[in-house]
Design a protein around this nucleic acid. Sequence first.
DNA 1: GGATAGTGGTAACGAGGATTACCCGAATAT
DNA 2: ATATTCGGGTAATCCTCGTTACCACTATCC
Lengths: 208, 208
Amino acid sequence: MSAERSYGGVPLTRRREERRERLLAAGVELFTSTGYQQTKITDLCAAAGMSNRGFYQEFDTKEALLLELYVRTNQLAHDHVSHVLTTLETTDPAARIDILIDVYLGAVTSDPRLARLNYVEAVGVSPAVEALHVEWVGRWSTLIEREADRAAEAGFAPRRDFRLTAIMIVGAITGLLREWQNHAARYPTPEIAAEAKALILASITRQV
Amino acid sequence: MSAERSYGGVPLTRRREERRERLLAAGVELFTSTGYQQTKITDLCAAAGMSNRGFYQEFDTKEALLLELYVRTNQLAHDHVSHVLTTLETTDPAARIDILIDVYLGAVTSDPRLARLNYVEAVGVSPAVEALHVEWVGRWSTLIEREADRAAEAGFAPRRDFRLTAIMIVGAITGLLREWQNHAARYPTPEIAAEAKALILASITRQV
DNA sequence: GGATAGTGGTAACGAGGATTACCCGAATAT
DNA sequence: ATATTCGGGTAATCCTCGTTACCACTATCC
């Protein structure tokens, strides 16, 4: 009857949470090393230190686990970036872009596995994942578009429709990071950041 | 004994070729509708109008079929682009970039399925496919880098290392096309082309 | 025209793996 | 202390699909 019974001094909800976390961690690890498709439920459970059954207690399918990881990563980075940007309400366009890039790259390059997860493993897995991707590209593009508009307002860039430009910028960064995580000898992050910033500036301030 | 026997008036090699083509066509169709992972050997054979056995006569695995499709698409586009560019040996940087984009986009947008195949279905499938991806990103980047260098020689852009810029440009176009093929209401190709050209110009000629 | 060898289809085999039924042990309640 | 219920591990089930052995058919050769 009691919805909340303790085992080993730990309440159910907490244990469930911890198991969920362990499964998510196992997902990051295995999806990015073994590969998403090749990873079996059993593998995840073994890595998370639990039995097969444990998995189904937390997730319906392997895909559900991937979806959660994908959303988490993006949500986290997005929250972080937009929080910092709203805090900076006052600064000039170039500085805002600098911050944007530093924060985003900081989030995604801190763990190369996250980059791989986002840009490689989570691609083309299923319609659901693809839909999520579209959603997030949209969200990131909108964020960049807003910055561009704001730069235009400030007379820093010409006024125009920045939608496609924003999409390309998102693609450019995605592509760069996908490449980055693929190489053992990685380009140093500052170099990448500098390039990204320069490309954004150039494509926003371009005349035409 | 005779290595070449005709059946139904058609020699073996030709029949094999035709079957291979039909399988490749089936691959494009099914990989981009059903999805690569979800497509079964049997499906491919059914779509190609042959029995299961026929598949193994031409390919070892489904992955081999995908690899061939991937290489074909890229090779074709690359040959086309670089041929046109070498033909234009004389023209100015901006015009060369125009042509480059027109030819590339022409090749990849002529059939939206090819875009989906390249940018979605063939991602994260296996180490082999991933290796191929790295190779082709490298090739395209090099091509763009060369154009940038050439522009710099001509005094049209500052001299610098364009490697990362080139990688980002490839990513930008990839991202744009991935987005493009995902939406039923597609951005018109000319608009996309114009954006791509502008972004390349801006990121190559940027000061710094 | 019969013999022979190349071709391709059918169907069965078997492995891999997701899913879940069952059971044991642990923790509370009386 | 014992009954009762919850939690979790093991292991069997079941199904899907890749793979291939075998057979029937057809075209050439003598």
